[in-house]
Each structure stands twice: as structure tokens, then as C-alpha cells.
Simulated scan of single mutants.
Amino acid sequence: MRNNSTLNTKRLFFALAFLGLIVSALCFHKEMQEPIKIIFESKIPRFLLWGYVVVSVVMHRFLFGSTDSNDSFIVRHFGKYADTVFAIGSFGLGGSTSIALMKGLYLQTFFEMHFFIGFGSFDLVSMFLLSSFLFVYCIVNTTKLFKEVILQNDASEAIAE
């Protein structure tokens, strides 16, 4: 059996960088706590998120129109403008809410501040998993829109005969 696979250097670099990040976090977790706290307490994460979402969605809608079919409820009843506003609101609010929840969870866990009084360990872990999933969902879907804006696809459509 012959193996025709080739090395994907981008994936290798990402894997090594991710491994390096994990090793650094394990070795220097005490030193990393304060900078992470400063980042969470600043307005930078939300500002970057909202900027990324607004630019990505507006540019995508401007260049390609709605991502939904023309039969979608929002486009049909309120138009493409409302569809754009709804997309920005969904990804922006979802992302910024998840950042706020993760900030509270981080500060409560590592700095003994109290944000979620009356919640047990299971509740806090569940909240972290759900908020991190929501954050990743918003970033991944916004990135899909952004990639469509910046990447040009030169392939032509294949027609089956």
C-alpha cells in the first residue's frame, strides 16, 4: 500500500504552537494569571470582538447579500438590512455575553471574587463549557463570513451531464 500524503506545514505549525501554548500554561500558570485578569478586565476583548463581527458581517452582506435564502423570515418580512443587523446582534451579543461569563468565572476561580453566588462546582463548569461553546460558535461563524470576503474562489461551477 502506497501512502501519497504530504505534510501540511500550516497544520503542523498550528499543532506545535498549540502544544507550546499548553506547555507554557502548565509551566507558567501563576505568572499568566495576572495578565489574563488585566485582559479580561479591559474593554479590549469586547471591542475587538464587536469590530470583527461588524466588519465581517457588513462586508459579507455588501459583497454577497444575505447568507440565508431569500425565503428566510427576517429577509422576507424586514429586508436585508434587518438581516444584517440581526446577524451582527447575534454574533456580537453572543460573543460579548460569553466573554462576560468567562471573565466572571475566571475571576471567581483564580482571584476569589464572587460573581455567581449560590452556584456549585458543577454549575460553574457547565456555565464555562456553554459560554466557551457560544464564544467559539460566534468566532467560527464570523470567521467563515470573513474568509469568504477575503478569499477569492477562482473555481468554476461543475455541471453534471
Rank of each mutant, 00 (worst) to 15 (best):
L49K: 04
V58F: 01
S66W: 02
V53R: 06
S69F: 05
L124S: 10
F64K: 09
S121M: 11
I159S: 12
T9V: 13
I39E: 05
F86R: 01
S96T: 09
S42P: 06
L93P: 07
V54I: 15
E148V: 07
T97W: 06
M32N: 13
I74E: 01
F91G: 02
T97I: 14
L48T: 15
L105F: 05
L134E: 13
D154E: 15
S96I: 00
D154F: 12
A160F: 14
N141W: 10
R76N: 11
A17F: 03
V149W: 03
G104C: 00
N3C: 07
N70S: 14
F119G: 01
R61Q: 14
R46N: 15
G89E: 05
N3H: 10
S66G: 09
K37Q: 05
M59P: 00
S69Y: 13
K43T: 15
S156F: 14
G104R: 01
F62C: 02
A82C: 04
T6D: 15
V55F: 02
V23F: 09
I88R: 06
I39D: 11
K43W: 05
I22P: 00
F14W: 03
F115M: 05
G92W: 04
D71R: 02
K147C: 07
F62R: 12
L107G: 08
V75W: 00
I139S: 10
R2W: 12
Y137S: 10
L145S: 07
R76Y: 01
L7N: 07
D68P: 00
G65K: 04
K10Q: 09
A82H: 10
F119L: 15
K10I: 13
D71A: 11
S131M: 08
V75K: 08
V149Y: 01
G51N: 04
E31Y: 14
H29Y: 11
L19V: 02
S24N: 12
P35F: 00
S131H: 12
I36K: 03
V57L: 03
F14G: 07
T142A: 12
M113A: 13
L16I: 02
M102W: 08
F18V: 06
N70M: 03
F91V: 09
E112T: 11
S69H: 09
G94N: 13
E157Q: 12
Y137N: 02
L129E: 02
V75N: 02
Q108I: 03
